[in-house]
Simulated scan of single mutants.
Amino acid sequence: MISIETIDSCTIFRVTGDVTANEIIVEATRYLAGKQTDTSLWDFSLAGSVKISTVEMKGIAESLKLFQTDGQSRKVALVGSKTINIGLGKLFAAFAQIAELPHTYKVFRNFDDAMHWLGG
Rank of each mutant, 00 (worst) to 15 (best):
S3M: 10
S3H: 13
E5W: 03
T6R: 12
I7A: 08
I7S: 10
I7F: 09
D8H: 13
S9P: 06
S9L: 12
S9Q: 15
C10V: 15
C10M: 04
T16N: 01
T16F: 00
T16P: 02
V19N: 01
A21D: 12
N22Q: 15
E23C: 00
I24M: 06
I24E: 02
I24T: 04
E27G: 03
A28K: 07
A28I: 02
A28Q: 06
T29M: 14
R30P: 08
Y31D: 07
L32N: 02
L32H: 03
L32D: 03
Q36G: 05
D38N: 11
D38C: 04
D38A: 15
T39P: 03
L41A: 06
W42P: 00
W42T: 15
F44T: 06
S45H: 12
A47W: 01
G48W: 04
I52R: 08
S53C: 08
T54V: 09
E56S: 02
K58I: 14
K58W: 14
G59F: 13
G59N: 15
I60K: 02
A61G: 12
S63V: 08
K65P: 05
F67C: 12
F67A: 11
Q68F: 10
G71Y: 03
S73T: 12
S73H: 11
R74A: 11
K75S: 11
K75D: 06
L78Y: 11
V79A: 06
G80Y: 04
G80A: 08
G80C: 05
S81Y: 04
K82Q: 09
T83A: 13
I84R: 08
I84E: 07
N85W: 08
N85T: 10
I86K: 15
G87I: 11
G87H: 10
L88I: 07
F92E: 05
A93L: 01
A94D: 08
F95Y: 14
A96I: 11
Q97N: 13
I98F: 14
A99M: 10
A99K: 11
P102R: 13
H103P: 04
Y105K: 01
Y105I: 00
F108A: 02
F108L: 02
F108M: 01
R109M: 11
N110G: 08
N110Y: 09
F111G: 03
D112V: 00
D112F: 01
D112G: 00
D112I: 01
D113L: 00
D113G: 00
D113C: 00
M115G: 00
